[in-house]
Design a protein around this nucleic acid. Structure first.
Length: 254
DNA sequence: GTCATTTGACCGGG
DNA sequence: CCCGGTCAAATGAC
């Protein structure tokens, strides 16, 4: 009656694709500025929505004043031929993706999967550098209040604590920096995220052995080291970039 | 069947 | 007004 979300109006026929956001191997890793074929990348004429289906819903979306965000540059480990997305040990759920002006790659918005359960306000923005497609610019917002023993079942970390105590912000950042498994044991699944981990919480006497996840996490010495190591020998893309820092991808309008 | 991902629309600030 | 961010519904994958 009141709410009649006619199927088809809110969601116009969209072409389904097998692409996973911008994690493609970047076939056009070459130069795209030379061609000069700079388009808006939009060109998508979406159908209009005559009736605003969602008009009776006050969105108390308040903007957090605390801008505690730290930006990090994480090079995607080039295993084989594909670079996998950077994982900090947390389970992130993508809740949005938008193309940013000035960037050729869209920005992905992630949120803590446990946010709904733990209330972790941790957010994460991942964007590929237009100058370095293999480098991910990860922006962390908020602090992680939830512990993640699910994705990081390190053998040396006994998850005996049922309730994770609040950690210091410094510790959090430190952990993130040192929780980047670059040496993945080549996961059989294309997914790098594990799910269905918070199933046991009601305390219903689940004698389930759980802990089926066994990812051999390797201690990373320094992220920076890896970064530099990225192109130790051979010509580094950075050099090239620095050389031609002038990237004119800006289209000129009339 | 469940859950994460996908994608468009809308909101809100600068 | 434009840009950036978030939500919400649908679909696909597991």
């Amino acid at each position: 009656l009141f709410k009649s979300p006619a199927p088809g109006v809110t969601r116009p026929g969209k072409s389904k694709g097998l692409l996973q956001e911008g994690f493609l191997p970047s076939p056009q890793l070459g130069l795209m500025v030379g061609g000069g074929s700079s388009e808006t990348a939009h060109g998508v004429a979406i159908l209009d929505a005559p009736d605003s289906t969602r008009t009776a819903a006050p969105r108390p979306r308040r903007r957090n004043n605390n801008d505690e965000k730290e930006v990090k540059l994480i090079p995607a480990p080039q295993m084989g031929n594909l670079d996998l997305p950077p994982d900090d040990g947390h389970t992130w759920r993508k809740y949005g993706q938008k193309e940013i002006l000035g960037s050729i790659y869209p920005r992905s918005y992630y949120r803590c999967t446990h946010q709904k359960f733990y209330g972790c306000p941790a957010k994460k923005l991942v964007q590929r550098l237009d100058q370095d497609p293999r480098t991910f610019k990860v922006t962390y917002r908020g602090s992680h209040t939830c512990h993640m023993s699910a994705t990081a079942p390190s053998a040396g970390v006994p998850a005996a604590d049922s309730l994770p105590p609040p950690m210091s912000t410094s510790a959090a950042s430190l952990m993130q920096a040192a929780s980047i498994p670059l040496n993945f044991p080549a996961p059989p699944t294309t997914h790098w995220l594990s799910m269905q981990n918070v199933a046991d919480l009601g305390g219903a006497g689940g004698p389930g052995p759980s802990a089926s996840r066994a990812a051999a996490e390797m201690p990373v010495a320094d992220m920076a080291d890896v970064m530099f190591n990225s192109g130790s020998s051979s010509s580094n893309s950075m050099d090239l970039i620095f050389s031609s820092e002038k990237w004119d991808y800006e289209e000129k309008k009339d």
